[in-house]
């Protein structure tokens, strides 16, 4: 991991509250793995104080991209940045998805809720390069929450979406779409399920994976202090060797095996 104090922004796209910034950061880019994240400074002054953790969304040559939704003052400041300006970032941080070469030729399901699509896009490209057969399920409240849908389709990814209000795709939750997909897959269940999104969605994914006996990895979202294991501010209850402990999301995660995550309200 490095500090890159001057990653020059080379591209910006936006869709309502959603933004995609791409920037040159050769050293960080060279090490980045899907599921890892960056800590990006949003202000030169101590307000807002903390960097913002954002999953790595894309890598192309020496550039990286972050895709985010404006959710507060930090992301609002980040959304004002324009090409030519620079970002001060730490990365790549954390442990990403476990991309095993033996996934080549096998079906993998990526399940993203809202801005949770961010790291799955990078994952999908890497899995495609590996020769895995990736299918992306993308859910949100309404069509405006699925800004990357057209791009995924145009880039030829096997893709389906859902919205709570039915404005596009299946009406309902992305986890219902996931159940449909597994049912339709019949004899060839996914060799791996990778998911990112809000906690209730991830908990539902974990439950389905458990019932269907599918290996699943979840990328957890969390507010963070430092992002590199020093403050112990971002923790999740994780079960290891039969013992549940508060484990640092930034250092040991943000990706965890679904069965290891202990939820606040346990599944039935």
């Amino acid at each position: 991991m490095f500090k890159d104090p001057e990653a020059r922004i080379v591209g910006k796209e936006s869709w309502g509250d959603y933004f995609l910034l791409t920037f040159d950061s050769p050293a960080v880019s060279a090490l980045a793995r899907p599921g890892q994240f960056l800590m990006i400074k949003v202000s030169d002054e101590p307000y807002p104080l903390l960097r913002r953790p954002l999953g790595i969304h894309s890598r192309k040559d020496k550039t990286l991209g972050v895709f985010f939704k404006v959710a507060g003052i930090g992301t609002a400041l980040l959304a004002r940045k324009t090409p030519g300006e620079t970002l001060d970032l730490l990365g790549p941080l954390g442990k990403g998805f476990n991309i095993d070469p033996c996934l080549a030729g096998k079906p993998v399901l990526a399940v993203g809720g809202g801005r949770g699509i961010a790291p799955l896009y990078f994952l999908a490209w890497e899995l495609r390069a590996l020769g895995a057969s990736i299918k992306i399920l993308y859910g949100g409240r309404t069509q405006a929450d699925l800004p990357l849908a057209d791009k995924l389709r145009a880039e030829g990814f096997d893709f389906a979406c859902s919205t709570d209000d039915g404005t596009v795709g299946r009406r309902g939750l992305v986890t219902e779409l996931m159940e449909d997909e597994i049912k339709a897959g019949g004899g060839s269940p996914p060799a791996l399920v990778c998911a990112c999104g809000p906690d209730p969605m991830l908990q539902a994914v974990a439950l389905i994976a458990r019932d269907k006996r599918l290996p699943a990895e979840l990328s957890l979202e969390s507010r963070m202090g430092c992002g590199f294991g020093a403050c112990w501010g971002c923790v999740q209850r994780i079960r290891r060797d039969g013992k549940a402990e508060w484990i640092k999301i930034c250092e040991d995660g943000p990706v965890f095996p679904a069965e290891s995550v202990v939820w606040e309200k346990e599944s039935p």
Partner: peptide
């Protein structure tokens, strides 16, 4: 030591409130 249940951090204007609870 286990430390406190999350959330353990809150950002405030030019400040940070923590309640890590000395996990270590």
């Amino acid at each position: 030591r286990e430390g406190n249940p999350p959330p353990r951090l809150v950002e405030t204007p030019s400040g940070l409130i923590n309640a890590i609870g000395l996990q270590g």
